[in-house]
Nucleic acid binder design. Structure first.
Length: 234
DNA sequence: TTATGGATTAGCT
DNA sequence: GCTAATCCATAAA
């Protein structure tokens, strides 16, 4: 299966995802270097969540890039959000959430999975956004290798917080506290100019406390959103 | 020091 | 649809 098509100029070569069906499935290598600035994250997590939909999460492994478009996120607030890790105050684990905006907060869950968040709001104020699903764009073979799955099932690569972390090789040891606003890092967020047509907001998935707050944001109709079809309702 | 349950996933019924 | 797997942060004692 062809996973990437390079044209004459490598810096502006166009990348075509195998899904190939939506405009969100393309990007350019040049645009992957356009990192979101610190200020982008220095806002309420709900605003950052909306803003992150359609942006691209980029991982660099040596000289190879892995990238996926953000199609589903959840906002986690501070003390007023019982489901947030920050709800009961600052600890060694959640310290990044209380720090400056734009840094990776990674936690280990259910004995099996890592989940990636980005810190929001100024230093001293807790808040974050959980990445729940990506649409694979670049480095699909590396993703499949990391996930130990077949390339034929693209949804299995990055549809779900634990899955996308595994596909990009994200671990707490490697990435917790990492600056996500710099391409000098090996993990960052890029703006390639794509704008989602329609965004939906729903209840968050997999929590018991504060379960009714509408803090899950997703790109309407995107097939890489996690969970069942019935979950993708407002 | 011990107990509890979780921002999940994969595999089976 | 249901649940085991499997670690560890946090709360309780």
């Amino acid at each position: 299966m062809k996973i990437a098509k390079r044209m004459a100029e490598p810096h502006i070569s166009r990348v075509q995802s195998p899904s190939g069906l939506t405009s969100s499935a393309t990007t350019t290598f040049r645009n992957l270097r356009n990192a979101l600035p610190r200020e982008f994250f220095d806002r309420d997590p709900r605003e950052v969540s909306r803003g992150l939909l359609g942006k691209v999460l980029v991982r660099r492994n040596g000289r190879k890039l892995i990238a996926g478009r953000v199609v589903e996120v959840e906002a986690y607030l501070g003390a007023e959000d019982a489901a947030a890790h920050a709800a009961s105050g600052k600890t060694a684990r959640n310290a990044v959430l209380f720090g400056p905006p734009g840094y990776a907060y990674i936690y280990f869950i259910y004995g099996n999975h890592f989940c990636l968040n980005v810190s929001t709001l100024p230093d001293g104020i807790a808040g974050g956004v959980l990445f729940r699903a990506l649409e694979p764009l670049v480095g699909l073979e590396q993703m499949a290798l990391a996930r130990d799955t077949e390339l034929g099932d693209l949804r299995a690569l990055t549809s779900g917080p634990g899955r996308l972390a595994e596909a990009l090789g994200i671990t707490r040891e490697r990435d917790n506290g990492k600056d996500l606003t710099s391409t000098r890092s090996d993990l960052w967020l890029a703006d390639d100019g794509f704008v989602p047509e329609k965004v939906l907001v729903t209840k968050r998935i997999g929590i018991t406390k504060a379960a009714d707050m509408p803090l899950r944001y997703l790109i309407a109709g995107n097939r890489f959103v996690s969970g069942r079809k019935s979950d993708a309702k407002p």
